[in-house]
């Protein structure tokens, strides 16, 4: 039982990262109805930028700010150059366009920073916390990661529910034409959605880098898990992305703890298939996902 608790706690840290990346995918989906395959590429790129800033200034915090700014800019650039020009891009076209961006970003990062794994400095203590006479598989750093995820979710929820910008973003996501008629500047709203997604992805990248190092391909697997979490959660739901992201982390941790780790992806696939078979619109999704 204590071991189970350890596996669960150990999974929360990695789950929080998956949750943030899933959150970014949900944001672009809500904004433009596009699943952004380049999201992990953007996060990787901004994390490399952060690493350069960190090396230059020595400050973890300045590097994080740098990543956030770069994330927003990169999100806007991708949306502006790649997705805006084609008004009615179908799912396949959008996937392929963002996939092309992903390949290009990874190659560009390889050109600029080289293909090797690079260490990202650890800003907080990353040793197990001792409390109540035992060591827990959580560190101060894990708590920071979970804290960031929590703050971002609460902040985004407030933004969407309590501000006029959030209202217009929701309106645009629901029906761009109607939103335009009611005076929403749709183009600007979409761009802000992408910038927000870029910011969330950038934060996720900077947070995951100290525990896994960074290379042009180091976030690839994150895309698969985050996409899975976002889809099962229901692509429209912020809460769904976070809950399922953390859930995915837990499942991976518990499965590799109790059985062979090579079972983890297979279990993830089975759960994904079962979930979509039972609830095609995702656990937290609206009914719009299923058409017939």
């Amino acid at each position: 039982m204590t071991q189970f608790l350890d596996y669960v706690l150990g999974g929360i840290g990695s789950g929080a990262i998956i949750a943030l990346m899933a959150l970014a995918l949900v944001l672009t989906w809500r904004a433009t109805r596009v699943v952004n395959f380049a999201q992990v590429g953007q996060a990787m790129f901004t994390t490399f930028i952060a690493l350069s800033i960190q090396t230059l200034t020595g400050s973890w915090f300045i590097a994080l700010i740098g990543a956030i700014v770069a994330g927003a800019i990169l999100g806007v650039i991708v949306q502006y150059l790649v997705l805006r020009p084609v008004k009615r891009m179908d799912t396949s076209g959008a996937i392929i366009a963002t996939f092309g961006v992903l390949i290009a970003l990874q190659a560009a990062a390889g050109m600029i920073w080289g293909g090797d794994s690079q260490a990202y400095p650890q800003p907080f203590s990353n040793t197990a916390i001792s409390l109540f006479g035992r060591e827990w598989p959580l560190s101060v750093y894990d708590l920071v990661v979970i804290g960031f995820a929590g703050v971002l979710v609460v902040g985004l929820t407030l933004l969407f529910t309590r501000t006029s910008l959030g209202l217009s973003m929701r309106a645009t996501a629901f029906n761009p034409e109607v939103a335009r008629l009611s005076g929403v500047r749709v183009g600007r709203t979409l761009t802000i959605g992408w910038a927000l997604a870029g910011v969330v992805g950038a934060v996720a990248g900077v947070l995951v880098a100290p525990t896994s190092a960074i290379s042009p391909n180091s976030f690839d697997i994150l895309l698969v898990f985050a996409f899975t979490a976002a889809v099962i959660g229901g692509l429209d739901s912020l809460i769904g992305a976070v809950a399922l992201g953390i859930g995915t982390g837990l499942i991976l941790s518990v499965v590799s703890g109790y059985s062979d780790s090579s079972n983890a992806p297979v279990v993830a696939l089975v759960l994904l298939a079962l979930n979509l078979a039972i609830k095609p619109e995702g656990i937290f999704g609206h009914n719009s996902a299923r058409s017939v």
Binding site: W29, T91, I95, V224, T228, P265, A268, L269, L272, S291
Partner: peptide, 16 residues
Amino acid sequence: LTGPYLAGLTLGIAVG
């Protein structure tokens, strides 16, 4: 399933 949900399922298959 439609659009991205189907993409999610088939992505899972591609990896799984």
